[in-house]
């Protein structure tokens, strides 16, 4: 067996970090050699949980012999850690949204290109089995030419740094657009040409957008909407997210529900109804792909450029909401 791929975690600020670290420990070809988090207590807790080492300085991970790092910081800091990791010659997977500005995204992609390291964007929805199947069917021509897509990514209101625009770059729109915009670009192979968005803080007293409705036009002639709203009630909704696509083609309609494979539990002691997702775990296969990209020296399924293109649609949505009109793509900055 080849030498395992050595991975370090940079930050658990995004809760997906725990899922990814767990996946690394479950993949035989990978080894979780160190974790860093800005808060030593939490960092140590994570190290204990995943039976690995806590290092109090992320530079120490970059100076170590890890092959790759997984960055799950707040959105603003993606750029700082990505560029530092690239300069240290480490392969990188960055949590979504890839970036909160086009200039930042370009600096990240540029630094990785220059350093010759692999740059992956954590788009687990590409690894959700219903979405993979949807892409396969669309590309096989099953529904003819794609004319329109209706997409949603709803969720609960995450709080914390997610609702501090200085750290997150916005609210629900920057948080949720990219899962769906990436799927749309990936599935259709088209380029987005225009974005219109309505958004507002309507549901929670948080001062950032918690309802977002985007309309995207593509160079193929197709159009789409993306609903990013944090509309699932935090206490009572039985599952955190939905990621749903309905694709209208000249010869038929496909719908894919990434979290459709669930069963319900009704627990008297917690007074909770829970929808338990039992489908294939997208997070595991996402990390598996990143490990494979390093081990086999190939591109990851979703690259930094993919992350940048998906982010561009979210960034354009904010520009559209400010301007009150559609914004043409590509964004100059």
């Amino acid at each position: 067996m080849a030498k395992p791929v050595r991975i370090g975690m940079i930050s658990f600020e995004h809760m997906h970090g725990m899922k990814y670290a767990q996946a690394v420990t479950e993949i035989p070809e990978a080894e979780l050699v160190a974790v860093w988090h800005h808060d030593a207590f939490r960092g140590t807790e994570m190290a204990t949980k995943f039976q690995t080492r806590y290092v109090p300085d992320y530079q120490a991970i970059l100076e170590s012999d890890v092959d790759g790092v997984i960055i799950c910081s707040n959105n603003r800091d993606h750029e700082k850690y990505t560029i530092a990791a690239a300069r240290a010659g480490k392969h990188i997977m960055v949590e979504k949204p890839f970036a909160t500005s086009m200039a930042g995204a370009r600096r990240m992609v540029g630094a990785c290109r220059e350093a010759g390291v692999k740059l992956a964007t954590a788009f687990p929805m590409r690894h959700a089995a219903p979405m993979k199947r949807l892409k396969g069917l669309v590309q096989a021509g099953t529904i003819g030419q794609v004319l329109a897509i209706c997409g949603t990514n709803h969720g609960k209101m995450p709080g914390g740094w997610f609702i501090d625009p200085a750290l997150s770059g916005g609210g629900a729109v920057i948080d949720h657009t990219v899962h769906v915009s990436d799927l749309m670009l990936w599935i259709t192979g088209a380029n987005a040409t225009e974005v219109y968005a309505e958004m507002d803080c309507l549901l929670h007293p948080i001062g950032v957008d918690d309802v977002g409705m985007l309309t995207v036009s593509f160079d193929s002639g197709a159009f789409a909407t993306i609903d990013t709203s944090w509309v699932h009630p935090n206490e009572t909704y039985p599952i955190w997210p939905d990621v749903y696509l309905q694709v209208i083609g000249t010869d038929g309609v496909l719908t894919a529900d990434a979290f459709g494979q669930i069963f319900a539990t009704y627990n008297e002691s917690t007074r909770k109804v829970t929808h338990v997702h039992w489908g294939s775990d997208p997070d595991f296969w996402l990390v598996h792909d990143f490990i494979g990209a390093i081990g086999d020296d190939r591109e990851p399924l979703a690259t930094g450029v993919d992350g940048m293109r998906a982010s561009e649609i979210a960034i354009a949505a904010y520009a559209s909401a400010r301007a009150g009109r559609p914004v043409p793509l590509p964004l100059t900055d």
Binding site: L147, A148, E198, M199, I248
Partner: peptide
């Protein structure tokens, strides 16, 4: 035919109509 509409109400509320 197929249509997608975003509706902004005078109250500020938002709706999506498919």
């Amino acid at each position: 035919d197929y249509c997608l509409t975003t509706v902004r109400f005078a109250s500020g509320a938002l709706a999506h109509v498919e």
